[in-house]
Each structure stands twice: as C-alpha cells, then as structure tokens.
C-alpha cells in the first residue's frame, strides 16, 4: 500500500513537473532587443497600424480622446468577458512604470512584467511577427501619450479559463510566427501582409476560431460568428468581398463602402485607427487582401 502511495505521488510529481514546464512563460532572448533605439515619429504610424486605440481607448471616444488609452471597453467571448486595461503611460494606473523590455515581452510574447501570461484577447499572437524596431518606435511614441488615472476593471472569466498559467499550453498550440498568406508576393503585397498579419491583426476577428479559441488558419479571413452576439464578422476574402484594390483602400481610409454605406460596429473603431495611415499603406493592405485564398 505504501508503495502504491509512493508511486502515485511520484506520478503526480512528474505530471506537476510537466505542467510547470509546459505552462512556463518563455520571454524574449536576452539579446533580442540589443541596440534598438526608438523613433517616436515613426512610432505613431505603428500605433495606428497596430490598432492600440481601437481596443484601449475608453468606450465611444473620437479624435484626440482616442490617444488616452484608459481602457474600459468590454469584449465578449465564449470564455467570458475581457475588459481592456488602462495602458496609458500613467505610472500608477497604466504602464508608465514599465521599461522597454517589459513592453516588448508584452507585445511579442504575451507576458506581463510579473511573468504571467496575458489572455490572447490581447493579440500578441499577431504582434509576435512585428519587427522589434517597430516595437521600439512604438514605445518611444508611447512616452508622450496622455495619462489616465482610470482604474482597471477585472476580467469576467470563469473557471478554468481564469487560470492564466494554463495559457502556457494554449500558447504552445497557437503561437505560430509563420505567415497565413505564403508564396511569392510583390513588395507591396509583402508590406500589406506585414501590416495586416503582424500589426492590424485582421485575422483576430475575421478568421473563425476552434473550440479552444485558437484561430483556424486554414480558413483565414473567411468570416466568423460575432462574439458579441449579433450577426457575423464578414468574410473578407476577395471571392466573397468582390471589392477592387482602390475600393478596399478607400474604405479603410474613409469608412465608406463602395455603395457609400458607413461601417458601424467594431469596424468603425478599426477604420478610425487605420485611416491615420498613409494611403500607400492602405493600398498595400488592399493588395494583400486580394492575395488571400478564397
């Protein structure tokens, strides 16, 4: 009997050890950020391309207010409701006390300064493809953003999904740094792919997810149920959308569809961010979208 207990304890320990190993946060290599100097002026374009304000600006804000990353927007999902935190440079309520390494580990690895996993509502599964130089530029731009003293609201996530440590396994399954659209791309399409897949994270809403909430990359941008309930997030593959390159770019610039309708819903926030980019970047995103299969 004693041997059985000892054996069970051993099996338990091994399982625990395996879990600890599988779920551990894996930060950036020490030299990954070596020698990077951020340029705040370049960082502004990264800020709009990455859509930071689309989720982290307070609900229903416009224009200059969107630079105040006070948080508070709510994001429903099958796992519960995520509430965007304050990521303004306020040292107490936001992330002003972070250093660049902490910021880069959040963006590129989904790890907090305390070494915890972030929930993938924060789209680090896209940002992990970002050029570390862009992250450095973004962090330089961040320093002059307005401060907010808004307190964070807790996420409303039930057991077992609220155990962050388990996300280590999820990350092993879904942290894929490859490109969804492969093959020979022109320079413009390659730029568009970088903007769309690494920064603008179009796939986070427009690609369907599996039961564990991971993106089904075999149905890239094929549309998905709207996690907030109403309707569907549209299929934006060229065969379904049927818009020309200039119609897509024009839509991202002005928010008007080729029928001169105006986007509402969460896409209105996305357009508010993307419309700040130079037209050639929007043309590049459009060129990329026309290369998506389907």
């Amino acid at each position: 009997m004693r041997r059985v207990i000892a054996l069970l304890a051993l099996v338990g320990l091994i399982a625990l050890g395996g879990w600890v190993w599988l779920t551990r946060p894996v930060p950036l290599e020490e030299d990954a950020l070596a020698g990077l100097e951020g340029d705040a002026a370049r960082g502004e374009a990264v800020f709009w391309a990455a859509g930071c304000a689309s989720c982290h600006a307070a609900p229903e804000t416009e224009d200059e207010e969107r630079l105040v990353l006070a948080g508070g927007q709510r994001f429903e999902s099958p796992f519960g409701t995520f509430v965007a935190p304050n990521i303004s440079p306020d040292p107490e309520h936001g992330i002003g006390a972070w250093d660049f390494e902490a910021f880069a580990n959040a963006m590129l690895r989904g790890i907090s300064p305390e070494g915890q996993h972030y929930f993938p509502a924060f789209p680090y599964t896209a940002y992990l493809r970002a050029d570390p130089q862009d992250v450095a530029d973004l962090w330089a731009y961040w320093q002059d953003l307005p401060h907010s003293e808004a307190p964070d609201a807790p996420h409303e996530i039930g057991f077992p999904f609220n155990i962050r440590r388990n996300l280590g396994v999820w990350k092993r399954l879904y942290m894929d740094d490859g490109w969804a659209v492969a093959g020979d791309l022109t320079e413009q399409e390659t730029r568009g792919r970088y903007l769309a897949e690494a920064l603008a994270h179009c796939g986070e809403c427009h690609t369907p997810r599996d039961a564990l909430g991971g993106l089904d990359r075999t149905r890239w941008l094929a549309g998905a149920p709207n996690p907030a309930g109403d309707g569907r997030i549209p299929d934006i593959r060229p065969g379904t959308l049927g818009w020309s390159q200039s119609e897509i770019a024009g839509y991202l610039q002005s928010g008007f569809t080729p029928e001169f309708d105006v986007a509402g819903g969460s896409m209105a926030n996305v357009v508010r961010s993307l419309s700040q980019l130079p037209r050639e970047d929007l043309d590049a995103i459009a060129a990329y979208l026309l290369r998506v299969e389907g």
Binding site: N226, G231, V262, A263, G265
Partner: peptide, 8 residues
Amino acid sequence: HDANRAEE
C-alpha cells in the same frame, strides 16, 4: 449605425 443598426 453603431447604436441603432443591426449587423448584416
């Protein structure tokens, strides 16, 4: 549209 129009 955000407040008062249903998604398609």
